[in-house]
């Protein structure tokens, strides 16, 4: 079975590197699925899960808080803004971040704060969704 090389990196480290039979990513215009020999594609990512399907059918998921996706026929690169390993994610942390973001949103003063808080909220919500999904699939 054909595979495609996948690299997930963030400024704080390498998240994943390996071969995949299919990669799913939360692109800005909707989720995309990338199979080997996909046409070159460049797109932005929304906060959400990048799922990597391995040749043996098992699937791994990684949370990204937005970023850039580059696809070459033999290669997928995810340049994540913040990426945390799914199993390292702490649900409480996400809820906490969400609460903090909401708090900031309610008493935000400047537009900059507001915009930042909104972005933080979107990320936190996506992370919380992601974690509940993971929890369901493991139980």
């Amino acid at each position: 079975m054909a595979t495609i090389e996948i690299d997930i990196v963030s400024a704080e480290g390498q998240i994943h590197h390996g071969q995949a039979s299919m990669v799913f990513a939360p692109a800005e215009m909707g989720e995309v699925g990338i199979a080997p020999r996909h046409a070159p594609l460049l797109t932005r990512l929304k906060p959400g899960a990048v799922r990597v399907k391995q040749a043996d059918g098992s699937e791994q998921a990684f949370f990204v808080g937005g970023g850039i996706l580059e696809v070459q026929p033999h290669l997928v690169t995810v340049l994540a803004d913040t990426a945390i390993r799914a199993k390292d994610c702490d649900e409480a942390l996400a809820t906490e971040a969400k609460r903090r973001a909401e708090e900031k949103l309610s008493n935000a003063k400047s537009d900059v704060d507001l915009a930042k808080a909104q972005a933080e909220l979107i990320q936190a919500v996506a992370l919380a969704d992601f974690l509940t999904k993971i929890k369901k699939s493991t139980h």
């Binding site: 215009m29 594609l41 460049l42 797109t43 932005r44 850039i68």
Partner: peptide, 15 residues
């Protein structure tokens, strides 16, 4: 060339 989504200028800018 790449398929750019949503458009090339914006994406290049981000990258």
């Amino acid at each position: 060339d790449y398929i750019y989504e949503p458009n090339a200028t914006e994406l290049l800018d981000t990258v």
